[in-house]
Design a protein around this nucleic acid. Structure first.
Lengths: 206, 206, 206, 206
DNA sequence: AATGAATGAGTTTTCATTCAT
DNA sequence: CATGAATGAAAACTCATTCAT
């Protein structure tokens, strides 16, 4: 398929751009670098991305999508039916998100630090993405509240953001420093527990 | 005094640069913009800063110094003599730091987000500044430990950084969103309490 | 061939630069002038030369090479086998060199006068080139000495330089004034005779 | 006298300019350098020279005048009355000129190499000066010819230039290299002899 | 006269983007 | 589609010169 060849080439350029941006920032990389790293001429770049800015946008978008997916958990289809399943799922989502972020620490650093500083649009895009990420959690919490598993008087939007904040905070050492040993599973457990003990309605007050 | 005129002009350009950088980022601002905002020609800019990069450095340095000062507390000379005074001083420092950051939220966002992404040197400068800030707290905690007011088995360097992290986290809403109502005093109290309950040696174990 | 197109364009820019430099000096010519004279935009210039300084270097190098070639004679392969052939060859080389310099008097003036004053590097390059040119003669004289055709007690390095000096001196009217009638062949004969009567070992002392 | 203070200051700036130009060329020196080297502010420079170009012109003019003077001999007033006196005077003038040039080798290099390359006007000024210098000799030779001491069929203008050329050639090692031992008196003698044997009418043909 | 702050014309250089082949 | 030569807008920076003090 011609299409898949094109897709492949697009991906190659995407990967090259990520690699270059990660190691040299946005402004110190030019289209020729990206094209060279992808093994094509710089003219070819413009057959796949309309301009340099577009590839940054793509990276932000793709990363955002992947993060949303990571925080959305695997069992999104079959919703939890009990409070315990709900809690397990919550923990799993935190764990999945943290694992993703831990695995792609450099990419995280790029989208959270470098990309954000490129221009006002990039900053906006990042903030919207941040909110969307929180929204994922908010949605899940809302599902839990409908079933009485979550305090009724919590601002769920805020709570969603807070969850992301706590996770990001827990990952700070990984994001700021180079290669640190980090037990994502343990951290996720701790985070979840911390978050839940604050969020969930005590059983006996049912 | 010739000196004060020069200082005044330098300040004018500094302020103009901050203002421009905050609203348009680093790369979307050129020297002519800064000079125009300061009411001088672009050539004049170079009589006060050797180049565009130099103002950024100055902003980072000045902000770092101001933050260090804010977190250093007022009563640095007359050191606390009792555990309670120590705790009060600790709380005061957190409060002073948070108040500063809250008051200069936009500047904080610039140095923490935009500036950091400018280039590798800016990133380094920011990380070193972050460590210096933590060091301020570390020093204070070390003073407390000598007097038995702080757990003996805590890594004080790490603890210093952690305090800054917690404060930053608490301020996240202010830093990321535009103008949010924020009760710095209350937040500081909460932070301090949280941090102290983890840091301080329980009285009964004396 | 892509290569030849590039070479052609490089040559076009080279020629334009020479033309501009000859008529207006180095500092009064800017890259835009050169590009315009070559019929391309100034941006294009930088696709062929990394900067303005690089063309100057190229001109120096190319001219130096051409001069070395001119002074190297045609019969370099089949070395002279008799004293008379040696003298003929020597005379031929002087003649070839002078003819070249006479034909490119303006270029000579540029590399010897204007280029030399551009900066310290240009001066160095010129001096090294001057020595290399002398070296060409030195080499030839050394060949003659091995066969007993040249005085044994002459410093050949010095002699090589001296030959060039004498030739340049003889050409001074051409180099300093605009278009002067100049009989290169006659001048070469005179120079060679003058130089040889000093250099060659008298026959009767054999 | 106010005048002499001004003259002194002008001289100071002149000397500073010469010193700077000699060591760094024309274009790498800016007015601020010259002023600083003279111990005044750069604004003051413009009270003594209308612009940077003017001081170059002054250097060329002053040097030219000094050279003309050096080649004009001491006994210009009391003209030689015999052929031998004429020859002695000729030799003395060559010697005086060479001594001057040898003593100010760096300055010579500057006016002959660096200054000449500055712009078209500087080149013209140098050529005119060169001709004027030759004219000094031409004049002297004309005086000799009137008395029958110089060949009648020599082009005296050309001869004047040639004398300067020979002298410059003889000084080439001094002008091109740094500090070389150079016996100006001996060189002058040689030059004069060489020049005279070509120029003077043989005694026996009287 | 001396000063030095201010100016802005002028130059170099970069690089995203276009487009003919 | 791929290529890479050409383009020119844009920006940083320099420095001779002016002029108010």
């Amino acid at each position: 398929m011609t299409n898949s060849v094109a897709a492949e080439r697009t991906q190659k350029l995407y990967d090259a751009a990520v690699q270059q941006f990660l190691s040299r920032g946005y402004y110190d990389v030019d289209v020729a670098h990206i094209a060279a790293a992808a093994g094509v001429s710089h003219g070819t770049f413009y057959n796949y991305y309309s301009n340099k800015r577009a590839v940054l946008h793509a990276i932000q978008q793709t990363t955002e999508d992947a993060m949303v997916k990571a925080f959305s958990g695997l069992r999104s289809a079959s919703a939890p039916t009990t409070r315990d399943e709900f809690i397990d799922e919550f923990t799993a989502r935190i764990g999945s998100g943290m694992t993703f972020m831990n695995r792609h620490a450099e990419l995280m650093r790029f989208v959270a630090v470098t990309a954000v500083g490129v221009d006002a649009d990039a900053m906006d895009k990042a903030l919207v993405g941040y909110e969307r990420l929180g929204g994922t959690i908010t949605e899940f919490l809302a599902f839990g509240r409908e079933r009485g598993w979550v305090h009724a008087d919590i601002d769920l939007t805020l709570a969603g953001q807070a969850v992301i904040s706590v996770v990001v905070t827990a990952l700070q050492p990984v994001l700021l420093e180079e290669a640190v040993d980090f037990d994502a599973a343990a951290a996720a457990k701790a985070c979840a527990t911390y978050l839940l003990s604050g969020l969930r309605r005590p059983k006996n007050s049912d």
